[in-house]
């Protein structure tokens, strides 16, 4: 593979007959390439929490994911293709995880196994828990469940394999490591007063300055300061599902308030009448 200059193969100068210009050679090459990738997907031997036990159960004889070419679980990130983030990602642990991710060679894939790794899970409200590993490293496939059963995990692994099938060597978006070289390392988070993502450091610094000056901080609407990298703040990109409705829900409808007051008055009258009746009886 390494001796083959793919760019040249893709070049339109390459003598491909007019009726075969639909990348025939590339497509079948892609098929072999994808087949090889999907059939030797080596996961990292890397367990975080409860989900890791189900991952081990999946690797064991009853479910046995070696049937899909994944039997070689590697302890070293240098030898693995897939990082199964199996369990709750804590702020303390995300530092080594990002480091491990950076050490994995391309092509590398990340699976968020279980609710915790996908989005924080039941421990999301905790002070030491990250709301999903995808805030730090790109995730290819999410497997919900708490924990996902071995069969659910295998479904996730097969989904990942299916993802490969759709990819093409001709498309540099699918195989970026041949086009632009190795991907940039993910900046390693720093443990300060809280965890600090270096990509958001400038933003946090501004907030800290605002707080020190006694100004309102922590708001969604940012002060008119040029933020160097707003695109990498992942939380900014995702609008709430029902953002529009929330605004209206928080407003107090004058009509409704009047109605409520009326109702309260009626209830009070009723209560008074009842009390009076009981008093008479007594």
């Amino acid at each position: 593979m390494s001796t083959l200059d793919l760019r040249e193969l893709h070049d339109t100068e390459f003598p491909v007959p007019a009726d075969m210009q639909n990348n025939v050679a590339i497509t079948s090459l892609s098929k072999i390439y994808n087949w090889s990738r999907r059939s030797s997907l080596w996961p990292m031997l890397f367990g975080l929490a409860c989900c890791a036990i189900e991952m081990i159960a999946t690797a064991a004889s009853r479910y046995d994911f070696s049937r899909f070419g994944m039997e070689v679980m590697r302890g070293s990130p240098r030898q693995s293709d897939l990082m199964i983030v199996s369990g709750t990602v804590t702020k303390k642990m995300v530092v080594p995880i990002v480091r491990l991710y950076n050490q994995m060679p391309e092509p590398k894939y990340v699976m968020a196994m279980g609710a915790c790794a996908s989005g924080g899970g039941p421990f999301k409200e905790g002070y030491n828990v990250v709301s999903g590993i995808d805030q730090y490293v790109p995730v290819d496939v999410y497997v919900p469940g708490c924990p996902p059963t071995p069969q659910a995990l295998m479904y996730g692994l097969i989904s990942l394999q299916k993802k490969f099938d759709g990819e093409s060597l001709a498309n540099l978006d699918d195989v970026p490591w041949y086009g632009v070289g190795p991907s940039d390392a993910v900046p390693i988070p720093v443990l300060g007063p809280d965890i600090i993502d270096p990509r958001q450091a400038e933003l946090i610094r501004q907030q800290a300055m605002l707080a020190a000056q006694g100004l309102p901080f922590g708001r969604r609407e940012l002060p008119a300061v040029a933020v160097p990298q707003p695109a990498v703040a992942p939380v900014e990109e995702k609008p709430a599902i029902a953002a529009a409705s929330t605004e209206t829900a928080e407003e107090i409808d004058p009509e409704k308030a009047a109605r409520l007051a009326k109702r309260e008055a009626a209830l009070a009258r009723k209560r008074a009448a009842k009390a009076a009746a009981e008093g008479n009886e007594g």
Partner: peptide, 30 residues
């Protein structure tokens, strides 16, 4: 479902039998 811990309390305490725990575990997503 990224917070849900599959504990089944909602189904257990629903007085109307209106919420139940599903059996469909094949939910993996990109």
């Amino acid at each position: 479902i990224d917070i849900c811990m599959n504990c089944g309390y909602c189904a257990e305490f629903c007085p109307f039998d209106a919420i139940k725990m599903d059996h469909d575990y094949e939910l993996a997503d990109f």
